[in-house]
Design a protein around this nucleic acid. Sequence first.
RNA 1: GGGAUGUUGGUGAAGGGGUUUAACACGCCACCCUCUCAAGGUGGUAUUCACGGGUUCGAAACCCGUACAUCCUACCA
Length: 552
Amino acid sequence: MNNERQELANLIFPNITKTIEDYEKLYPERNLGEKAKVTRFAPSPTGFMHIGHFMPSLIDYVLARQSEGIFYLRNEDTDTSRTVLGAVEYIRSVLNTYDLNPDEYEYRDTNETKGEYGPYIQSERKEIYHTFIKHLILEGKAYPCFLTGEEMDSIRESQSKDKRRIGIYGRYAKYRDLPISEALTRIKNGENYTIRLKSTGDFNRKFKFNDLASGEIEFPENDIDIPIMKSKDRLPTYHFAHLVDDHLMHTTHVVRGQEWISSIPIHYELFKTFGFKMPKYIHIPLILKKDGDTIRKISKRLDPEAKMTYYEEKGYPPLVVIEAVMTIANSNYEAWREGHPDAHFTEFEFSPKKMSSSGALFDLDKLDNISKNYISKLSKEEVYKNVLAWSEKYDLEFSLILKKYKDYSMEIYNIERERKKPRKDYTYYSEIKDKTWYMYDEYFKDSQYDFSAYDQEEVKNILKTYLKDYYIEFDEENVWFEKIKEMCHQLNYATDMKDYKVNSEKYKGSIVEVTNIIRIALTTLTTTPNLYDIMRILGKERIKNRIEKITN
RNA sequence: GGGAUGUUGGUGAAGGGGUUUAACACGCCACCCUCUCAAGGUGGUAUUCACGGGUUCGAAACCCGUACAUCCUACCA
C-alpha cells in the first residue's frame, strides 16, 4: 500500500525531491519582536485596484507599522487566465502614491526583489506547493480525481434538484477511494486529473473559530474534497496556496474581506491536516453600494468610485482617502484624529474588534468633507504644488498656465486661507480650474457675459463711474468697500440691506446689484470668492481691460 | 437548496439590561451673519433601535422565532 502511494506520488511529481522540513529550514521563524505582526497584501494581478483591496492593505500596513512588524506584497497569480501583465507594477504604484510601501516584494519589470521569504510570486513557487501536495499523497490525504467538467456539472445539477448540499463530498467524491493501481494506469494513459484533499471532516460536527473582527463564530466542519491543484497548469488553488505561503512566510495576521469568512472551514481543515498553526484572521466589512433601492457589493464595472484610479483622477489628496477609509474601518478614528490633528495615521491604535462586521456604504459626501477640510489647512505653496502635479498628469494645458503664473496662482489659492477658519471651497484638485479659470486672461478672453438681468445702460454707467471715480489700486478692504458704498449713494443704490428690504421703492436697486455687475464684468460669474480679493489679485491692468471691454 | 454573518436616522456609527428625553461626525432643512459664494454661528432633523413573542420591576441591549439584506456554495481569487 505504502509503496503504491510512493509510486503515485513519484508519478505525479517525479522531480520533487525536497521535503516540507527542507522548506521549513529554508524559511525559519522571523527574527522579530514578540508583538510584531506580519501582514501581507495578496492581490490577484487582474490589472486594477479596488477600494475593497485598498482597505485591507491599509489595515495590513497600519498593523505592521505599529507593531514593528513586516508588511509584504505577494502576487497571487494562480489564475493564469485572469493574470494581466504589469498588474503588480500597477499595484506597486498605487501603494506608493498612498505611501503604503511593502517591506518585502518582488517586481518583475525592474527585477527588484526584497525579503528572505520569497519568491513572492505564486507561479514561481510551484515546486514548493508540489512538495506539500506530494507529502499529502504519500500520507494518503490527497488523491487524483478524474471527474470531468461535464460530470461535475451533472452532479451539481442533481444535487440542486434534490435540494442537497452542492459539492464533491461523501458519495459524490467518486475517486477518493479509487484503487491506486487504477489511478496509476489512468495517469499513465494521459487522463486529466486534479488533486483533491481527502477531507476527514463531518458536516454535522461544529467547531468554533475566533475571528479578530467578528468574534467567535461557529461553523460546520468542511467535508468537501476541495481541489488543491488544478489539472491544466498544476498550480495550486487559492486555499492551498494560502496554507503553504502564509505558513512559510510566517504571516501572523490575515486581513481580508468578509467574503472569505465562508472559506474558514476549508482553511481550518487544511491547517489541521498539516498540523500548522493558523494565522489570526481579521475579516473586514465589505464595501457596499446603494443602487436605487438595493444594496450590493461595490463593483468596479458599475461604480467608478470602486476603482482607486477614480480618486487620483479627481485629485483627492491621498491622505484624504486614507482618512476616509480609516473612518470606515474604525469609527473611533475620527474622534482620535480630532485630538491628534498632526499625528500620522499609523499612530492610531487600530482595533479589529471595533470593526463592524456588516458591510458599510462608502460615503462620498463624507470623503468630500474630509477633503475640503484637509485642503483648507494646506499652505498656498502646497496647494499650488499639488494642483500642478495633478494637472501635469491630467490637464497639460492648465499645468502650463500654472507654471507661467506661479505666484499669481498662489495668491488665488491664498484667498481667505491664512486664517483660523479658512475658506473651504476646494474639494479636489480637478475642480480648481473650474473655480479659478476666470483669473487667467488665456481662459477669460473668449468668455461670454450675461447682463440680461440688468438694464444695459445702467451696467455701463455703473462700470464707467466705478472705474473713473471710485477704483484705486492698493486700497485696504474697508476703504475699498467704503468707496463702493459711496458710489451707491451717488447712484441711488441702497447700502443698508435691511432698509432696502423695507423701502425698496426709494432706491434704484441695492449694493448687491452694483457689486454683482462689477463681479460679472470681471469674472462673468455671480458667485465668486470675495470681490475685494479677486480685484486685488487681478490688478489694475486686468480690471481696466475687462471693464473697458464692456463700456467701450 | 445549504452554510455564515448581520439588521440602531439619508450615511458612517456610539451604546452591550435602569443618568438614553439614543452620543459624535457627514448630509439635509431653517434662521443669523453678509457685496455674491464659501466659511462661520444657532437651531431642527430616529417618540425610538427590522418584526413577533418571551425573560425581567425595567430591554435598543438577554433568549426564541420570522422577515429581510450581504457574502460563500468554481480545477476564481
